[in-house]
Design a protein around this nucleic acid. Structure first.
Length: 594
RNA sequence: GGGGGUGUAGCUCAGUUGGUUAGAGCACCUGCCUGUCACGCAGGGGGCCGAGGGUUCGAGUCCCUUCACUCCCGCCA
C-alpha cells in the first residue's frame, strides 16, 4: 500500500465497493449533523464524500478540523443509497466510511474561502494565489492551459517543426516596445535586454538552415497592462519557416487552429477558411484592424453625400469642405426603437470623447423619408443614394460620424461594439477568425511627422523584388498579417525581408543610415549577407488563445502567477530592493526619487 | 502621464435627506442535531468605515488632499 493514498479523490465508484482504501487531500467542505459528519475531501482530481459518526472515537477530533486542512483518510468504500446519490460529482455513487485519519497539513484561518464561486478582490487573490489556484474554475483554466500547450507542441512536431530555445539575455533593440534591462556584472555600464520576442533569433535559425522552427517562447515587454495584456511577460507560439510565402503560413496556422479550437471548445467556428480582409478595408468597414466578425454591423464612407445641393445638413457640409470625412454605421430594423435608445447611443458617444453620433431612420410613406433629429436635411434622392452606398433598407437606422479619419474610425469602431451589444447581435457561442492582410510598410508619425515603419521593419514589401517602386513609401504594402478572433488580436507575422540591399533601402526611408542598420541589427544584417533563404513566420499569443478557449475576459484568469497592474508580484514581493553589495558589484547607483 | 470605477468585519456586500450603540451572508468560536451534499437551528467574538485634513452641535454619508486595487486612453512593430 502506498504511503499517502491508494486512490485519488476523483476516482472511486461502485466498482470499488467494500474495498478498504486511502485518500489524501484538502477538506473542501464539512456538513456536521452533530452525531454524523460529512467531509468532502478534495484533490486535483475531484471530490469524495467521506462520512463518520459518533461511534468512531475520532469523531470529535475531525469535527474540529478547519476547512482546507490537508488530511489522509483511510476507510471503506460504501455504495450510497439511491436517495443519496450526488450526480454532480464523479464519485457521487459512493462515499467513504472513515476508519482513521492523519493530519498532514494544518491551516491558519483562511484569508479567502476556497469553496465558493464568489468573486474576490484581485489583491487578495494574487497575494494568496496558492489558495486562489485551488478554486475550481481557475484550477481548471490552468489545467486547460497545460493541455493546450502540450497539444500545440505535439501538433507542431507532427508538422515537422523543430523546437529550439533562444537566449533570454540578449541585446536591446531600438524598434518596438520598451525593453526590460539586466545589468552586466562582467561588462560594467552595459546591459542585456530580455527578448520582446525571439524575432531576430528565429530568422537566424532559418539562415542556419533548420527549415522549420517553433518554440513556446516567453516574451518580455516593459509596457503598461490591460485586461488582455500581462505586464512584463507573456508567451507566444513562435514559429518560422523557410522557402514559404504567405499562403504557406496561412495553411499551417489554419490547420493548427481548427484542430486546436475544435478539440478544446464546443463553440462553432464561423468560417473554417479564415476570411482575409485588407488592413485598409478593415479600417473602413470596422474602424479597427481587429474586428469582431461575429458582429454583423458595418461601416461605409458617405462623405460625398455631403457635397450634394439637396443635402442641407450644414454642420457636416462645412466640416467636409474643410477636409473631414463622414462615415455611416447601419443597424437593421431599428426604426421603431424608442427615442431613448438613439439618444442613449449619442450620449454614450459623447462620453467617449467624440462629438457624438447623429442618426436618422429610414421610413417609407408616400415617399422615402428620414425620421430623427437630422432627417429633414436629406432629400429623397440623397436618401436613396445613401441606401445604395450603405446597403441600408427601409426600417434601418443610420448613425453618422463626421471628423478626421482616425477619429471617425475610432468612435465608429467602439460604437459598433456598443450598439451590437445593446441589440444583442453577438453570438457568444461562436469563434470568428479572420486574417488582416496588406498592412502598409510605412506610416507618418503623428508627433514627428516623419515616415516610420508601421509594424515590423524586417517585413518583406509586396511586389516583384527587383522592380519595387520605393518612390511613394506610404503606398508600399508589406507581407505582414494578423490573425484576429472575436475581436482579439491573436498574433501577427510576416514574410521577412531577406535581401540586405532592400533592407538598407527601406531603413533609409525610415531615417536609418546604412551604418545605423549595420550597428543596430548587426547580427541580422550580417547573417542575411551570407546566403539567406526566403522565410517567414508568425507568433500567436498563447495566453490569449487560452483566454478564448476558457471563455475568460482577463488574462490573469489563465496565468498561474500573474503580476498586478503595477507589475508587482504580491505573493513573491517582486520587484524588490537589492543590497548595496549587489549594486556595487553591478556598478550601479540608485538615484533617489524626490 | 491622463480619465472612469471601487475601497465598510477574515471574505462578499448593504448602510436612506448628515442624527443614538454601523448591519447581513459566508468564515471563525460555543451549544443542539444520524443522511447532508450551499445541511439546519440557537448563541458569541470580530470594525481606525483605505489614510490625512476640512465643513458641522454631529460625518461611513458632504468638501479637499492622498494611497491602494481595477478598467480604459497614451504605450504595446
Amino acid at each position: 500500500m502506498k504511503k499517502y493514498r491508494t486512490h485519488t479523490c476523483g476516482e472511486l465508484n461502485k466498482s470499488h465497493k467494500d474495498k478498504e482504501i486511502s485518500l489524501s487531500g484538502w477538506i473542501n467542505k464539512k456538513r456536521d449533523h452533530g452525531n454524523l459528519l460529512f467531509v468532502d475531501l478534495r484533490d486535483n482530481y475531484g471530490i469524495t464524500q467521506c462520512v463518520i459518526d459518533k461511534s468512531n472515537e475520532l469523531f470529535k477530533e475531525i469535527e474540529k478540523l478547519s476547512l482546507e486542512t490537508v488530511i489522509q483518510v483511510t476507510g471503506l468504500v460504501i455504495e450510497r443509497s439511491d436517495k443519496t446519490i450526488n450526480e454532480n460529482i464523479s464519485t457521487g455513487e459512493i462515499e467513504v466510511k472513515i476508519y482513521n485519519i492523519y493530519i498532514l497539513g494544518k491551516t491558519k484561518e483562511l484569508p479567502m474561502p476556497v469553496f465558493s464561486d464568489q468573486e474576490y478582490a484581485e489583491e487578495i487573490r494574487l497575494k494568496y494565489r496558492f489558495l486562489d489556484l485551488r478554486r475550481k474554475k481557475i484550477h481548471q483554466n490552468i489545467i486547460l492551459r497545460s493541455k493546450v500547450i502540450s497539444f500545440i507542441r505535439n501538433e507542431m512536431q507532427n508538422l515537422g517543426f523543430l523546437e529550439f530555445q533562444t537566449p533570454i539575455l540578449t541585446s536591446s533593440s531600438p524598434e518596438g516596445a520598451r525593453d526590460f534591462l539586466v545589468p552586466s556584472r562582467l561588462n560594467p555600464g552595459k546591459f542585456y535586454a530580455l527578448p520582446q520576442a525571439p524575432q531576430q533569433f528565429k530568422q537566424l535559425i532559418m539562415v542556419s538552415g533548420f527549415d522549420k522552427y517553433f518554440q513556446i517562447a516567453p516574451c518580455f515587454r516593459d509596457e503598461d497592462a490591460r485586461a488582455d495584456r500581462s505586464p512584463g511577460e507573456f508567451y507566444q507560439l513562435d514559429l518560422e519557416m523557410s522557402f514559404v510565402n504567405q499562403e504557406d503560413i496561412f495553411d499551417i496556422i489554419e490547420t493548427l487552429f481548427l484542430k486546436l479550437f475544435k478539440k478544446f471548445s464546443n463553440k462553432k467556428i464561423l468560417h473554417e477558411k479564415f476570411p482575409r480582409i485588407s488592413y485598409e478595408d478593415a479600417m473602413l468597414r470596422y474602424g479597427s484592424d481587429k474586428p469582431d466578425l461575429r458582429n454583423p454591423l458595418q461601416i461605409s464612407d458617405i462623405t460625398n453625400i455631403f457635397t450634394r445641393d439637396d443635402v442641407k445638413f450644414e454642420i457636416f457640409k462645412k466640416l467636409v469642405k474643410s477636409g473631414s470625412i463622414v462615415r455611416a454605421l447601419v443597424t437593421k430594423n431599428t426604426s421603431e426603437k424608442p427615442r431613448s435608445f438613439f439618444d442613449g447611443i449619442d450620449k454614450w458617444a459623447k462620453d467617449q470623447g467624440s462629438s457624438g453620433l447623429a442618426y436618422f431612420s429610414l421610413e417609407k410613406g408616400d415617399s422615402i423619408n428620414a425620421k430623427g433629429p437630422i432627417g429633414k436635411f436629406f432629400s429623397e434622392d440623397a436618401l436613396l443614394e445613401i441606401m445604395t452606398q450603405t446597403n441600408a433598407n427601409i426600417g434601418d437606422t443610420i448613425f453618422l460620424s463626421c471628423g478626421k479619419k482616425d477619429e471617425v474610425e475610432q468612435i465608429l469602431s467602439i460604437a459598433r461594439d456598443k450598439i451590437a451589444e445593446e441589440l444583442n447581435l453577438i453570438d457568444n457561442e461562436t469563434f470568428s477568425f479572420c486574417w488582416i492582410v496588406d498592412y502598409p510598410m510605412f506610416e507618418i508619425d503623428e508627433t514627428t511627422k516623419k515616415i516610420k515603419f508601421s509594424h515590423n521593419p524586417f517585413s518583406m514589401p509586396q511586389g516583384e523584388i527587383n522592380k519595387l517602386d520605393l518612390s511613394d513609401p506610404l503606398k508600399i504594402k508589406a507581407y505582414q498579417y494578423d490573425i484576429v478572433c472575436n475581436g482579439i488580436e491573436l498574433s501577427s507575422g510576416a514574410i521577412r525581408n531577406h535581401i540586405p540591399e532592400l533592407m538598407y533601402n527601406l531603413f533609409k526611408i525610415a531615417g536609418y543610415s546604412k551604418n545605423d542598420v549595420d550597428s543596430k541589427f548587426s547580427g541580422m544584417i550580417n547573417a542575411l549577407s551570407y546566403g539567406a533563404p526566403p522565410h517567414g513566420g508568425i507568433a500567436p499569443g498563447i495566453d490569449r488563445i487560452v483566454m478564448l478557449l476558457a471563455n475568460e475576459k482577463n488574462i490573469r484568469e489563465v496565468t498561474m502567477f500573474p503580476m498586478n497592474q503595477n507589475a508587482q508580484d504580491l505573493m513573491m514581493n517582486a520587484p524588490s530592493e537589492i543590497s548595496e553589495d549587489q549594486l556595487k558589484e553591478l556598478n550601479l547607483n540608485i538615484k533617489k526619487k524626490k
